[in-house]
């Protein structure tokens, strides 16, 4: 088995799918339990117009939950992986912009309780958050690539 084949193997892809799905379900639950705190987190990013803050705080956790569950259950895998990828890109841009303008924020990724941390601690955590999101983006890429290869193989005519 070549490295390429190993990377695209169904064995690996299923595990990546489940791990990524679990990450997103875990991220969604605290936000679903306490939408006002999540709205506060979104507000702190200073990127969303005031009128849309609450709507985003209500819908985004459900999107994370549904996309995560779809990945775990293997339903609409490419679509849900694509949605997860789009969400990760949004998170990456949002955190990077705030890091660039020194606006130290709590990520609100897996926890909506604001911790009493210093500005430096927050900025350091934001850098780690970016790395974590990039790692998850790689997981999305693996799923999309492996599923794409699988489809291509299925479409290829059988040789006699």
């Amino acid at each position: 088995m070549t490295p390429k084949e190993a990377l695209a193997s169904p064995w690996l892809t299923v595990r990546v799918q489940i791990a990524l799905g679990l990450f997103f379900v875990a991220a969604a639950l605290p936000k679903l339990v306490d939408p006002p705190s999540f709205a506060h987190m979104i507000y702190n990013y200073r990127l969303v117009p005031g009128a849309l803050v609450n709507l985003m705080a209500l819908v985004m956790p459900w999107l994370e939950l549904l996309a995560g569950l779809a990945l775990i259950l293997g339903i609409w895998t490419r679509t849900s992986a694509g949605l997860v990828g789009a969400l990760l890109l949004v998170f990456l841009v949002a955190i990077s912009l705030n890091l660039a303008r020194d606006n130290a924020i709590d990520c609100g990724c897996f926890d909506v309780a604001s911790a009493n941390r210093t500005v430096d601690e927050r900025l350091a955590d934001m850098r780690l958050d970016i790395l974590r999101d990039l790692g998850m983006l790689l997981m999305v890429a693996q799923i999309l690539w492996a599923k794409g290869r699988g489809l291509d193989a299925a479409k290829r005519p059988l040789r006699s």
């Binding site: 939408p35 005031g50 803050v53 609450n54 709507l55 500005v119």
Partner: peptide, 20 residues
Amino acid sequence: RERKLALVGSYPNALKVPEN
């Protein structure tokens, strides 16, 4: 009530970055 959100928020300065 404590966990409900108004669908449309009204937060002035939602786009204004605090300058330290």
